[in-house]
C-alpha cells in the first residue's frame, strides 16, 4: 500500500514537471513571435532636414533636355503605363501625375508613385519621382535609376 502511494506521488511529480516544460515551451514560443514584430525606432527629429533627405531628393530628381513641359508629362504617363501602373490622377497645370500598381503576382502589396514635372529653364525640365511600397517610401537608388531608364526610353520613342 505504502509502496503504491509513493509510486503514484512520484508519477504526479513527473506530470507536473512535464506540464511545467510545456508552459515554458509556450512562453518561449510567444516570446519568439514578439521578437519578430519588433517596432522600428522612431526617427529622432521627424521634420528636420537631414543629409539623408538631400541624398534621397537627389536620386529622385533628374533633369531632361525637353523644352515643352507637356511633352515631358506625356512621356511620364507613357512610361508609367508601360511599367503597368494605373494612372490615378493627372494635373497639367501642377505638372503632377500619380499612379499605382499591384505588386503582381502578390495582389496585397501596392506600389504608388507621384511624379512632378517642372520647367527648369527654357530648354530643360526637371522631373522628380516619389515612390512608395505599401505606404513606406522607397529609398533604394536602383528603383529610381530603373524608373528614369524607362522614362528616357519613353522620351526616345516619343521623339522618333
Amino acid at each position: 500500500m505504502i509502496d503504491r502511494a509513493v509510486r503514484s506521488s512520484g508519477s504526479g511529480a513527473s506530470t507536473r514537471s512535464r506540464r511545467l516544460l510545456l508552459w515554458a515551451l509556450v512562453a518561449s514560443c510567444l516570446l519568439f513571435s514578439f521578437a519578430c514584430a519588433k517596432p522600428k525606432p522612431e526617427p529622432p527629429a521627424l521634420l528636420a532636414p537631414t543629409e539623408e533627405q538631400m541624398k534621397i531628393r537627389n536620386m529622385q530628381t533628374r533633369t531632361f533636355d525637353i523644352s515643352d513641359r507637356k511633352v515631358a508629362m506625356r512621356g511620364v504617363i507613357s512610361a508609367l503605363q508601360d511599367l503597368g501602373f494605373i494612372i490615378e490622377r493627372a494635373n497639367e497645370p501642377l505638372g503632377m501625375v500619380t499612379g499605382a500598381r499591384f505588386a503582381e503576382p502578390n495582389y496585397y502589396d501596392v506600389v504608388g508613385i507621384t511624379v512632378t514635372v517642372r520647367q527648369a529653364n527654357a530648354s530643360q525640365t526637371t522631373i522628380r519621382a516619389n515612390a512608395l511600397f505599401n505606404n513606406e517610401p522607397i529609398t533604394d537608388p536602383e528603383v529610381y535609376r530603373n524608373f528614369f531608364a524607362t522614362l528616357e526610353r519613353s522620351f526616345f520613342i516619343g521623339r522618333n
Partner: peptide, 16 residues
C-alpha cells in the same frame, strides 16, 4: 513567424 511567403521586391517593379 518571420517569413512572409514569396514577396516581390520594389526593385522588380520598375523594370519593363
Amino acid at each position: 513567424g518571420c517569413s512572409t511567403g514569396p514577396k516581390t521586391t520594389s526593385k522588380d517593379l520598375f523594370v519593363l
